[in-house]
Computed example of a mutant assay.
Amino acid sequence: MHIKEFFSPDHTRLSFEIFPPNQRMSLKAVMASAARMAAYEPDFMSVTFKADGSGGDQTIQISNAVSEVMGIPSIAHLTCSGIPKTELPAVYDELTENKVKNILVLGGDSTRELGEDAYLPYAKDMVAYFRERGDFTIGAACFPEGNDPALSMDEELRHLKEKVGMGVDFLTTQMFFDNEVFYRFLEKARTMGIDVPILAGIMPITSAGQVRRIKDLSDAALPDSLLRMVDRFKDDPDAMFDAGLTFAENQMADLVAAGVSGIHVYTMNKPAIPERIVRDLGRLFHA
């Protein structure tokens, strides 16, 4: 089933992200979490590639299990920095054999052990590769707060438009915590002529440790209200969970009211997060 067929101007789609096994979570545990999330009937689920820099070979198989066994449309992440050019034909064959019709193409940031020349240089190149070879829905990433410090937002948007022109069907944003940042980005993207659906990426903050990781891994601005919340509840896990989900749900309710194409939840493989969101906000996605 092609995810690109889901989007419509009068309906906000809800999707969940899971990551494959790593040193902290076994395949059995990942599949158990995925099954619990699937029970909340998201519009689709995405499976990341090499969550910790290893184990990316299970992404496509997990994506197949989500769609073929759990009955939820799935999308498999692929990264330029994680797949040498010589392996791309085998990846294409694996996607086909596993009936995976939806892929999300990323530049990635893992170590390129074989040297730069062994990999496609940019996500747009991988988009073009798969667009030429198969009938896929192709998603890609975008960054409301920028991704390259050396580029202005206008320059980044020009590159994004070029990537979309290679055959991208929809975009998903990096996590953000201030909706106004997203709305400004969306307006600029539309003005630039980027007209594909843009999904808002939301990560509920349920521990103080997440804040440290976000600061290390992204340029996402953390509002004072969010930092106060984390400081107040950081030593009480239950209160922190409730406060973090409330903050994220307020973001999501506003985004749905604004008519965004979709909300993609970075779940950290925690089924309690989708459970809470669907319990509190489920009606918003079916209105």
Rank of each mutant, 00 (worst) to 15 (best):
G201Y: 12
F241E: 07
P204A: 05
M268P: 09
I273R: 03
D236K: 10
L222W: 04
I273W: 08
V265T: 08
P204F: 03
V256I: 15
P274H: 07
V265L: 10
G259L: 00
M268W: 04
L226G: 03
I277R: 00
T246F: 03
D242T: 11
R228E: 14
A208H: 11
A272L: 00
A243N: 06
V230N: 07
N250E: 15
R232Y: 15
L217N: 11
N250V: 15
A239H: 03
R212I: 01
V230W: 01
F241H: 06
V211D: 00
L222Y: 06
A253K: 15
L217Y: 14
S207L: 09
G262C: 05
S207E: 03
G262V: 01
A239W: 07
A258C: 09
I263W: 08
A248M: 01
M268Y: 07
L222T: 05
I205S: 03
I263T: 02
I214N: 06
G209E: 10
P237C: 01
Q251P: 10
A239S: 10
P271L: 02
Q210A: 08
T267S: 07
V278Y: 05
S218V: 09
F233Y: 15
D242K: 13
E249Q: 13
D219Y: 13
P271G: 04
R232N: 13
A221F: 14
V265M: 03
I214E: 05
L222S: 04
D235E: 12
V230R: 07
V260P: 04
A258L: 11
L226N: 02
Q210N: 07
G201D: 06
K234Q: 15
H264K: 08
D254Y: 07
T206R: 12
D238N: 09
A220F: 11
R232M: 12
T246D: 15
V278Q: 00
E275N: 09
A257N: 09
E249L: 01
P274R: 00
A221T: 14
I205H: 01
R213H: 13
P204H: 00
R228Q: 13
A220L: 00
N250K: 13
T246H: 14
V260I: 09
R228G: 05
R232F: 11
A243M: 03
I202F: 12
